[in-house]
Computed example of a mutant assay.
Amino acid sequence: MADVADPPEGTDDRATALEVAVSSGLPTTHKALKVPEVMEALGLSRFKVYDLIRSRQLKSIKIGRCRRVPADSLRTFIDDQLKEAA
C-alpha cells in the first residue's frame, strides 16, 4: 500500500497524495469535539457531559490532558437515546 506522504511514482502533486489517501480508506472527515462543543450540541452542563463519559454512555478519548469526543460517538449516543425513547 502506498504511503500517504509519498504520491505514486512520477508525480509530486498533493492532490494525487490526497486521492491515494482517500482510495486507501483513510478517514478524511473525522472530527473530535471538545467537551464545551458537546455541551452546546446536547444542551447539557459540563458535569453531565463528564458524567456520561464516566458512565461510558458517551465514548471519548484522551490525548495528553485533553478529553475529546469523536463526532461518531456523539451521533451514536444521540441515536441510542432516540431508540430508547421510542
Rank of each mutant, 00 (worst) to 15 (best):
residue 1 M to F: 09
residue 2 A to Y: 05
residue 2 A to I: 08
residue 3 D to S: 09
residue 3 D to H: 11
residue 4 V to Q: 08
residue 6 D to V: 15
residue 7 P to A: 02
residue 7 P to N: 02
residue 8 P to Q: 04
residue 9 E to Y: 12
residue 11 T to E: 14
residue 12 D to V: 04
residue 12 D to H: 10
residue 12 D to K: 09
residue 13 D to Q: 09
residue 13 D to V: 05
residue 14 R to W: 10
residue 14 R to Q: 11
residue 14 R to D: 07
residue 14 R to K: 15
residue 14 R to S: 10
residue 14 R to L: 15
residue 14 R to H: 10
residue 15 A to V: 11
residue 16 T to K: 14
residue 17 A to K: 15
residue 19 E to W: 11
residue 19 E to Y: 09
residue 19 E to Q: 14
residue 20 V to Q: 13
residue 21 A to V: 12
residue 22 V to W: 07
residue 23 S to C: 13
residue 25 G to Q: 11
residue 25 G to C: 13
residue 25 G to R: 14
residue 26 L to Q: 13
residue 26 L to T: 05
residue 27 P to I: 00
residue 27 P to W: 00
residue 28 T to R: 05
residue 29 T to A: 13
residue 29 T to D: 15
residue 30 H to A: 05
residue 30 H to F: 00
residue 31 K to Y: 03
residue 31 K to A: 12
residue 31 K to V: 12
residue 32 A to Y: 04
residue 33 L to E: 07
residue 33 L to Y: 11
residue 33 L to A: 04
residue 33 L to K: 09
residue 34 K to T: 10
residue 34 K to S: 13
residue 34 K to F: 09
residue 35 V to K: 03
residue 35 V to L: 11
residue 35 V to R: 04
residue 35 V to C: 04
residue 36 P to K: 05
residue 37 E to F: 05
residue 39 M to F: 01
residue 41 A to C: 08
residue 42 L to R: 07
residue 42 L to S: 06
residue 42 L to H: 06
residue 42 L to Q: 07
residue 44 L to Y: 04
residue 45 S to C: 06
residue 45 S to L: 06
residue 45 S to K: 11
residue 47 F to I: 05
residue 47 F to W: 04
residue 48 K to W: 00
residue 48 K to M: 13
residue 48 K to E: 10
residue 48 K to A: 10
residue 49 V to G: 03
residue 49 V to T: 01
residue 50 Y to G: 00
residue 50 Y to L: 07
residue 51 D to T: 03
residue 51 D to R: 12
residue 51 D to Y: 07
residue 53 I to F: 00
residue 53 I to Y: 00
residue 53 I to S: 01
residue 54 R to C: 02
residue 54 R to E: 07
residue 54 R to Y: 00
residue 54 R to I: 00
residue 56 R to W: 01
residue 57 Q to N: 10
residue 58 L to Q: 08
residue 59 K to N: 12
residue 59 K to F: 02
residue 59 K to E: 14
residue 60 S to D: 08
residue 61 I to R: 11
residue 61 I to W: 02
residue 63 I to F: 01
residue 63 I to S: 04
residue 64 G to F: 15
residue 64 G to Y: 13
residue 65 R to V: 07
residue 65 R to L: 15
residue 67 R to Y: 08
residue 67 R to A: 11
residue 67 R to G: 04
residue 68 R to N: 04
residue 68 R to M: 13
residue 68 R to S: 04
residue 69 V to C: 05
residue 70 P to A: 01
residue 71 A to S: 14
residue 72 D to N: 09
residue 73 S to T: 02
residue 74 L to V: 03
residue 74 L to F: 01
residue 75 R to A: 12
residue 75 R to G: 05
residue 75 R to S: 12
residue 76 T to P: 03
residue 76 T to F: 02
residue 77 F to E: 01
residue 78 I to T: 04
residue 79 D to Y: 01
residue 81 Q to A: 09
residue 82 L to G: 01
residue 83 K to F: 07
residue 84 E to D: 04
residue 86 A to C: 08
residue 86 A to H: 12
